[in-house]
Structures are given as structure tokens and as C-alpha cells.
Design a binder for these strands. Structure first.
Length: 475
RNA sequence: CGAGGCAUAGCGCAGCUUGGUAGCGCACUUCGUUCGGGACGAAGGGGUCGAGAGUUCGAAUCUCUCUGCCUCGACCA
């Protein structure tokens, strides 16, 4: 298989270039005239919509309600929580003029909306009867990033941010873990991406949070990609924003808070986790087109008629199907939809019609099979399922092969150079994290939930260590 | 913010060294032949050469300034 015209860079030649080629040539996005602000094209946005649909269902099962907060935050409000401000101030985009008038209280384009939610919560929460509040919003946020890459890091990105308030610490802690579980399931069931789950170290946690949890995906170039986070805030923000409720004991209390989010970075994970030298490979559940029908010799009327019958059959079965009867040659169409990662291709030509069959081809491994017309819906559904599992298994295998136990600094370096996670015992001292960063440009990705100590001292300082931590180079 | 690179048609580029009024491939439009792995022929349409200033009879080309973007490094979903 060779791309004659619009060839994309091969992964092994230049992985970063391959990535941008795929983003553009699969028509997921385009660059705009402002650095870091990308255009989500219909095909890319449709993937996001599938993610939204799935998550909205899961959220609503948990009692979460969708809301919408303003785009701008007065800096006087933003400044109320000290740690939070320090974390975000360097990357805020700030509006200083309204029309021709200079604004006294400058308006920050939201980099995240904790402060807006808190201000609102302070007005609507009076009693324990007003709790819990489980709010979510779909929106975009702006962070003035110095280096940007489509989907992975942008000055603006789309996300959902959930913000909750609970009566008790226990409920809030449970919420942060429950939402992490939902994200992990999203990876497994929808995106076919296995994540490593765990807690962030103090150094890596979110500004203002007491505890941060994350899901981390491992990319084929050996770098980790933080794909979603959940936070337990305690009642720090609540105190700073004066959120109080009268408890069951008739005493004023501060509620306990969480927030959680995933972003369009997930699209970047999908591209890298599954893509190959022919372009995108989309997991079936989020593929905007699950099956593309390519008629062969479509000028013969019986071919197009039959192709339309296949279209109706699949469409009625709830499968996202496209019939491409454009004027291009079949070969061109094969390449086009491979580039776009469509999981299953259905070919139908005169020979097939004579035999009452069609040809199904899988995007992920190129395998072709002939199917009777009567069986096509069942067979397509089966293939979509098979493809999902094959993608997941392949990623999972890669992940497990790239988690390396290390006992010394030399082993740590080897593991990082190989790519993937170095599984290390850590003393808990931030100085050791800093040292690893300085020496090998790797960060603590997380303290995994599965804690099975395999040594008793920290490879950096030699002191007693009881925590298992994953280090990796990251996006 | 440091380091590099690029800016000429929608995209990818040539032209610049040695100044003379813009070209190639792809894409696009029309017609015809094609169609089981990126088809072919014919005829077309499309560009104040990133912006500004300067040198010159004349600037895509030489000089200066500015701007934007991409890639790589320090921070973030």
C-alpha cells in the first residue's frame, strides 16, 4: 500500500510530523489565523460529539446536571483563592477594554471555572437540603500556551468541567474517584484506550486541590498523555468564597468540593493510540462514519441501486454509514477512507451482485471477507465489535510491555529511553521528583491505585520508600 | 520565553544567487473515455508574490523594519 499523492509522513520517520499530517489530511482540524486556536472541522467535531453523547449519559445517571457559566471572570473574583491564582495567572488571556472604555476590573477569559461555580454556589447553597450540587458544563477554555499542537495542547480547547459540592468530605472524596472510574470506562468501552489510573503527587496536582487523580494514556512514541483529571478540593475554595450551609446539627459548615474534566485532548489520544502509516484508525464506537460503501463501476445502474440497498439496510440497523458515489475511482476512495480511519469498508461491484454478496474490509488490519447480502448487518455489527477489541488489546499489550520496574537510577534512565512508564519505589520527597525531572526530563505521572511494593528504598536518595510511582516523559 | 525554519493560486513548491512585470504539480470547473488499491485526454478559471518603507527607469528577486505560522526545548487538560 502506498500513498502516491497526498502521502503522510511515516511514523518511524517523524512521529510528530505524522501526527500533524493525520490531523490535517483526515480533515479533523485546520489552523486558524491565531496561533493555538484551531478550527474543529466537521469530521473532528463529530468525534467530540460522540464523546459528549456518551459522557452526558453517564453523568446524568449519576445525577449530574448541565449548566453554562460566563466566558469571562472578573479578576477581582479570580483572585480569591491564592494557590489557584498562582497556578493559572501566567497563562491567562485578559480583556482590558470594553468598546473604547478601559475596564477597571479586568476580565479574564476562563482558563477553568472553579471561581465562577463557587461564586454561584455561595448564593444558592443555604442548607444541607441544597446539597449535593453536581453541575457540569461543556465549553471551551483559554490558556495562553507557549507551544501548541492540535488537540494535544492549544490556547483554546473544548472540554467538560464538572463541579460539585457535597455535605460531607466522604461523599466528595467518593465523587472524585467515581468520576475517574467513568473516565476510565470511557477509555475502555468507547475509545479502546487502556489508561493507567492513579493519584498525582503534590508537585503535579491541580492548583488549589487537595488531591488530584488522573488517567494517563501511553502513546506509541513512549510518552505519556494525561487524558483526564478529577480533583478533591476539600473545603478550601468554599472557605475562600464564603460558601456555607446550615447543617443537620443547626451549625454553619463549609461544603466539600470536587471538579473533574476531560478535553478534546482525547481526540489526540485516539489519533496517536490507534493510527498507522495510512492515517487515522478510529475505534468504531466514536467513528463518525462506521461503514463506508464503495460502489465499483457505479455507472452501471444496478450497482448504484444495490449500493443504496446496502446503505438503507445498515442505516436502518442504526449503523453510521456513508455511501460514496462521488466521481472518484474506487482506489482513490479506499485511500481516502483509510486516511479517515473508517473502521469498515463495504465494496460492491458487478461480480458481487451476480453472487449475492459484498466485500467487507477492516481498517485496522486490512483483512477482507466476503459476506452474503442477507448477513451483512450481523456481520458488520460483529466486525465493529471485533475491531474495538482488537484495538484495545493491541494498546493494552503495548502498555503492559512498557511498564518497567526499576531499582536504580541507571535502570530508570534505560526504562525512560525505551519509552513508557518506569515503575519505581519513591520516598515521597519532592526533591527526588525534581532530580528526575532535571536528569531525564521525566515527571511523576501518578501513584497507581494498585500498590504492590517491590523494593524498600528510593533509587534517587536511597531513603526508605513505600510508594509505587510511575515516572514517564509526557506530552 | 530560548533555538531553528518558513512566508509566491486552496495545498505543496520552483523562480531570488545574476532585478525586466509569475510558473509547475495537486486540487477546482466543463466534456468525454474510465472504475476490484490514489485513472486518462482535451479545454478552462484562479495570484495587489505576508505587511510597510527604501534603493532603482523598473523589485517576488537587493536593503531595512515589522508581523504571522510551524518545529524543537522549560510550564499546563
Amino acid at each position: 500500500m502506498e500513498n502516491k499523492n497526498e502521502s503522510i509522513t511515516r511514523q518511524e520517520d517523524d512521529f510528530a510530523q505524522w501526527y500533524t499530517d493525520v490531523c490535517k489530511k483526515a480533515e479533523l482540524m485546520d489552523y486558524s489565523s491565531v496561533k493555538g486556536f484551531i478550527i474543529y472541522r466537521p469530521y473532528g467535531y463529530a468525534i467530540w460529539e460522540e464523546i459528549q453523547n456518551y459522557l452526558n449519559k453517564q453523568f446524568k445517571k449519576e445525577g449530574v446536571e448541565n449548566v453554562y457559566m460566563p466566558l469571562v471572570i472578573p479578576s477581582s473574583l479570580f483572585d480569591k483563592e491564592k494557590e489557584h491564582v498562582e497556578g493559572f495567572a501566567p497563562e491567562c488571556l485578559v480583556a482590558t477594554k470594553g468598546g473604547k472604555y478601559t475596564l477597571e476590573d479586568e476580565l479574564i477569559i476562563r482558563p477553568t471555572s472553579e471561581t465562577l461555580f463557587c461564586e454561584h454556589f455561595s448564593k444558592i447553597i443555604k442548607s444541607y437540603r441544597d446539597l449535593p450540587k453536581q453541575y457540569n458544563q461543556w465549553c471551551s477554555v483559554v490558556r495562553w500556551e507557549k507551544t501548541t499542537r492540535p488537540f494535544l495542547r492549544g490556547s483554546e480547547f473544548l472540554w467538560q468541567e464538572g463541579h460539585t459540592m457535597y455535605e460531607t468530605e466522604e461523599e466528595a472524596r467518593k465523587d472524585a474517584l467515581k468520576m475517574l472510574e467513568i473516565y476510565d470506562t470511557l477509555g475502555r468501552d468507547l475509545l479502546a484506550i487502556p489508561f493507567v489510573k492513579g493519584q498525582k503527587t503534590d508537585k503535579e496536582k491541580f492548583s488549589g486541590a487537595q488531591e488530584t487523580y488522573s488517567i494517563e494514556a501511553l502513546m506509541p512514541d513512549g510518552k505519556a498523555l494525561q487524558s483526564g483529571t478529577t480533583h478533591y478540593f476539600g473545603n478550601g475554595f468554599a472557605k475562600a468564597f464564603g460558601i456555607q450551609f446550615l447543617g443537620r446539627n443547626n451549625k454553619l459548615e463549609n461544603p466539600h468540593q470536587t471538579s473533574w474534566g476531560v478535553s478534546t485532548r482525547l481526540i489526540g489520544s485516539i489519533i496517536m493510540a490507534h493510527g498507522d502509516d495510512n492515517g487515522l484508525v478510529l475505534p468504531p464506537k466514536i467513528a463518525p462514519i462506521q461503514v463506508v460503501i464503495i460502489p465499483i463501476q457505479q455507472k452501471r445502474s444496478e450497482v448504484l441501486v444495490k449500493a443504496k440497498q446496502y446503505f438503507d439496510l445498515l442505516n436502518k440497523a442504526g449503523i453510521r454509514v456513508k455511501l460514496d458515489d462521488s466521481d472518484h475511482t474506487p482506489g482513490w476512495k479506499y485511500s481516502e477512507y483509510e486516511m479517515k480511519g473508517v473502521p469498515v469498508r463495504l465494496e460492491v461491484g458487478p461480480r458481487d451482485i451476480e453472487n449475492g454478496v459484498c466485500v467487507l474490509a477492516k481498517r485496522n488490519d486490512g483483512q477482507k471477507l466476503v459476506t452474503k447480502e442477507a448477513d451483512v448487518v450481523d456481520e458488520v455489527n460483529r466486525l465493529l465489535d471485533v475491531i474495538h477489541h482488537e484495538l484495545y488489546e493491541k494498546s493494552a499489550k503495548y502498555l503492559y510491555e512498557h511498564i518497567t520496574e526499576v531499582h536504580t537510577l541507571d535502570e530508570l534512565k534505560l526504562a525512560l529511553d525505551k519509552g513508557g512508564y518506569a515503575k519505581m519505589m519513591w520516598c515521597g520527597d519532592q526533591a527526588c521528583e525534581d532530580k528526575i525531572k532535571e536528569l531525564y526530563q521525566a515527571t511523576a505521572r501518578c501513584i497507581p491505585f494498585d500498590q504492590l511494593p517491590f523494593d524498600d528504598k528510593c533509587p534517587v536518595c536511597g531513603k526508605k520508600a513505600s510508594k509505587v510511582v510511575f515516572f514517564a516523559r509526557a506530552y
